[in-house]
Design a protein around this nucleic acid. Structure first.
Lengths: 140, 140
DNA sequence: AAACACCTTTGAGTGCACTCGAAGGCAAGG
DNA sequence: CCTTGCCTTCGAGTGCACTCAAAGGTGTTT
């Protein structure tokens, strides 16, 4: 504990894959905190790595900075806000799952277009068959 | 054929779920074309609905307007560009699939955080166990 | 006659999340 | 002593894809 490694912003930035600019920006926005040495220089610890990691997971699922701010604020308010935080995450999760479903639907059509190109190229699909007609076959 | 329904921009916009502004913008960008009546007023047909539908699938998989422009341009150049178009679509598909994989990885953590909240709420996870510790259990 | 839907060009505004530079200053290391 | 890395505030710039308004026009419907 006493000797936990401390990272200054430059090193920390590389470690978490963000720029120092972005880390300061996130701090301004209230998403992260930093400790300061006797000269006011920021430093971070392993705990901060975990926290950034977590918020990057949230961001990665499509959560916006504003929501993230709200989440962080609730966290600071203590355990009474667990239900609300849980609900936020659930919504983000549901939304992301809906996004995936939609994406997969689009990908299906894209895949069929690729197949159609292949069919045209190797003449297993007649020259006269349009992609639209080809697509229709799957909607039965 | 002779009596195929023609849609003016307002009606067409509603039909495809875009604004008239956006349709004109897409036309400027060379993504779509429109026919004109004797007064210069745009009109669209069922064929245009299919085309917009297709480009919305492409956009939906993360293709950018610039790529879409390139794609449309290749299409206009004829069948010689099929290989290149196929390759574009394949790349977009691969990228989208990678995005989904990443998203699912983030969602996994998010789901575990939700479970952890539930565990805290119903006391099936000890008060002392941090989310980080809880998460570790799954990495074996 | 007015309202409505469309047309044109042009240019500005929006939202999000950074990203960077200026300007001025402190402290440690080679 | 000079470079490097950090600090501050502030404001501007970036990229993408729209989104809209201005200003002036045509043609159709009520």
């Amino acid at each position: 504990m006493l000797h936990e490694k401390q990272y200054r912003i430059g090193e920390f930035a590389k470690l978490v894959g963000l720029s120092a600019y972005t880390l300061r920006y996130y701090e301004d926005q209230g998403l992260i905190r930093s400790q300061r040495d006797e000269h006011g220089v920021r430093y971070y610890t392993a705990e901060d790595i975990r926290w950034i990691g977590f918020i990057l997971h949230l961001k990665g699922t499509g959560m916006r900075l504003n929501e993230l701010k709200r989440y962080v604020q609730l966290r600071a308010e203590g355990d009474d806000t667990i239900a609300e935080r849980r609900a936020m995450l659930q919504k983000v999760k549901d939304d992301a799952e809906a996004d995936i479903a939609e994406l997969q639907m689009h990908l299906k059509v894209l895949g069929r277009k690729i197949d159609w190109y292949d069919g045209k190229t190797d003449h297993t699909i007649p020259d006269t068959e349009s992609f639209h007609d080809y697509l229709q076959k799957f909607n039965k």
